[in-house]
Write a protein that binds this DNA or RNA. Structure first.
Lengths: 215, 215
DNA sequence: CAGACTATTCAACAGGTGTTGAATAAGCAA
DNA sequence: TTGCTTATTCAACACCTGTTGAATAGTCTG
């Protein structure tokens, strides 16, 4: 139980904030609750991170670079493998999603909480426009470019709407609300991310093909 | 500007709460802010609705019945039209989505805010499990049943995962965060709900077919 | 060791929170 | 009108919020 004593308190604050922000949102969490969960005095959060909003952004940024790198690497590798013809839609979407699954199944609960936080931010009319672009736009555009090449002749408008649908399905998966468990009466488990992506990849790939293939 | 003077103050509170809760979430809004936006004293919210949480649920419930009826009616009508063979996947999804578009384009901003609130709740690990089931499970199961008939031989697990993807795409659309506007550099507008559904219907229908058609 | 810097806690603040009870106004029946 | 009920405001409460400055402990360098 007390094995986290080794982790520096600064990091324990980030971990606690990550988990609580992901579940209750920015305003649903107080600094005192974060401090208590981290086993730390309230003032320490201010000392390390300044204002509450700065802590929120620190949590948001902590894992962003790592995540972007692993996804870009996955894209690069699938492009390498595909050779001259370029990767298929499925392969691109797989590169977009699988690194998330890996992060979620890593045993480190932090990644699961972090990705739930991304879902919270991405779905929020307030935070979404303020925070998503700065860290994820560049990555997304890379994937869009790859998709454009895999879908020659597709209208840009259609590609972006398809990506919107993919992003929505992904966001709800990351949020990990457990709703599908109830709906399906246990047949599906929202914590089973592998199953989620196994279904999401062919599902969305078929959608892209349907809308973006000239016929 | 002052044309809402006729609306009873009780309803003005609901309207203001609806809009603010949808944008900032439950904890991001104070009763005082709601009261100010409604042009009303703070205590009036408590008088009409009791606790803050009760007001939140009142907002959540106000339009639920109307919404469910219009969607069930759309399903019934598409089933009537389809006759003995039953409606196609596209037609079922259309019945699931179009009433939302109608509500959003009705000129009454309230519906747009309400649906954004649904998106907030559905994507929240805290509120989702607590609030979605009670009002929307029955409706969803009706549509799932229709989809089962339109996709004979499909495994239940696959159907539910497909519905999950549909629900995610829909949720992000309702949230109306404007992110796709930036990403597409204006080519797509998240406020253009008709365009959103025009793309979402064939996109998700193709996904259902891909995963739920035995081959 | 001293010293300097960092990390952490303690105590307190000014302001905001939801909620309540009494006071006042409005609407309506008799 | 008189009464009664509902609607609305006012004032206040006890509590919680983020933030800060001073005080204490810890860590490292010389």
């Amino acid at each position: 139980m007390g094995q986290k004593k080794n982790i520096p308190k600064r990091d324990r604050i980030l971990d606690a904030a990550e988990e609580l922000f992901a579940e209750h949102g920015y305003d649903g969490v107080t600094l005192r609750r974060i401090a208590t969960a981290a086993g730390v005095d309230v003032a320490l959060a201010s000392y390390h991170f300044g204002k509450k909003l700065d802590l929120f952004q620190a949590v948001f940024q902590r894992r962003a670079a790592t995540l972007n790198e692993s996804r870009l690497e996955a894209l690069a590798e699938c492009q390498r493998r595909a050779g001259k013809t370029g990767p298929s839609v499925e392969q691109i979407i797989e590169a977009f999603l699988r690194p998330l699954e890996l992060a979620q199944e890593t045993g480190d609960e932090g990644w699961r909480h972090y990705l739930a936080l991304i879902a919270y931010i991405n779905n929020s009319p307030y935070w979404g426009p303020r925070m998503m672009s700065q860290l994820f736009d560049e990555l997304v555009q890379e994937f869009i470019d790859a998709l454009r090449k895999a879908l020659p002749g597709a209208r840009d408008e259609d590609i972006y709407w398809c990506y919107h649908n993919l992003s929505g399905a992904l966001t709800l998966t990351l949020a990990n609300t457990g709703r599908i468990d109830k709906l399906s009466r246990g047949k599906c488990k929202s914590a089973d991310f592998q199953a989620a992506y196994d279904h999401m990849i062919p599902f969305t790939a078929a959608g892209f093909r349907k809308l973006c293939t000239s016929r």
